[in-house]
Write a protein that binds this DNA or RNA. Structure first.
Lengths: 209, 209
DNA sequence: GTCTATACGTTGATAGAC
DNA sequence: GTCTATCAACGTATAGAC
């Protein structure tokens, strides 16, 4: 008997928690941690403020959850690098994947940038190991390519940092791009073209083509 | 008679205003606009909180002044691009200049990133024209290089965006670099080497060398 | 599980003595 | 021009009715 009721409640909980996390991601991105108020988040989620505290207890907890989800999604993009053996495909697909993330999840990118900018006080606790491991593994791959003469001799860490910086900039500094684009946000077609240009610059940088 | 007194007061004012702006740049960088309190800024400047309001009236005013100074300094770095006629020197010196700025003025870079990240609500009012003009002029120069066959055909805007993104990332995401560097900040020597790597990647990207 | 009303702490800003 | 004391506004969090 209680099973179906419990299920119903759990569904409600899951739905509302997702509503709140989605809303929080956007509000944290737009206003920063301190600037974001639980009141604004609740309004964005179309729920009473008290419910936000009911589900997540504190604003800091909610923020931590938002960061966790972003890191998971960020890691997923790495697959597009790993599943292609040759440098041209791997780099091309990775850059495209990162550019798509900036396009589809601009708030996520901004929340992350904001967090690292201010010292990664919260995220630092849990993303340290993942980041180091990720870079170590891919550094090996890039160094192999260099030894096999497939790409020019470049510092792998600097290369990845450049790819992250450039692709994430399209989300984090979108306002600056908008200003340069006569105040208008990029159309899908414009964004596609910019993506191709970034791919070309990255391939050039390692001497492919 | 009052001349010398007035001079003295003006000197005091200038000294204190600079103290406060320096402190504010750091506190805004570390905590964001909302997270930065006038109390913390005043303590950082070793002055009573009331003096901050005496000199700048409001926190928003002070923030605006901080942004103005940053934009001025940012524009100055462009000289290292303009004073060299050939692409290799111009790009090399510009990248080095931008990397130096990230090293010497990390707080300035972070305040700017934070401002643009959250929609450039304040800076947008005054940096729109300067940015558009800056990019238009340099786009011409890059296109000339392309037509003269001095560099590969790349989109100038994407190129500049990549240079800004990468060089500013060394300030804005310094925490992430620190984590990858076993928790230690870069030494001057390490930073020099990274700078050389970035220069190489940028030159490769446009097909020089 | 939902929501209104409220307590409590923090912060921007100022009044007024020096 | 400097600084202490103070206030009003706001925001987090919760108590308690439904």
């Amino acid at each position: 008997m209680t099973q179906s009721i419990k299920d119903q409640k759990e569904v409600t909980r899951e739905v509302n928690e997702k509503l709140i996390i989605d809303a929080a991601e956007q509000i944290f991105a737009l206003y920063g941690f301190k600037g974001a108020t639980t009141d604004r988040i609740s309004k964005q989620a179309s729920l009473p403020k008290a419910n936000v505290h009911y589900y997540f207890k504190t604003k800091s907890n909610l923020y931590r959850e938002v960061l966790h989800r972003i890191l998971d999604d960020w890691m997923e993009a790495a697959e597009d690098f790993d599943t292609h053996p040759d440098p041209k495909s791997a780099l091309t697909n990775y850059v495209i994947s990162k550019m798509k993330f900036s396009r589809n999840r601009p708030y996520a990118s901004k929340v992350w940038a904001n967090e690292v900018l201010h010292g990664a006080k919260i995220a630092g606790e849990f993303f340290q190991n993942e980041l180091q491991g990720w870079v170590q593994d891919r550094t090996k791959i890039v160094n192999d390519w260099i030894q096999q003469g497939k790409i020019k001799a470049v510092d792998p860490e600097t290369l990845f940092f450049m790819i992250w910086a450039t692709t994430q900039h399209y989300a984090d500094f979108s306002k600056q791009l908008e200003i340069l684009n006569d105040g208008k946000a990029f159309t899908d077609e414009q964004y596609q073209q910019k993506t191709q240009q970034v791919v070309r610059l990255v391939l050039n940088a390692v001497g492919i083509e």
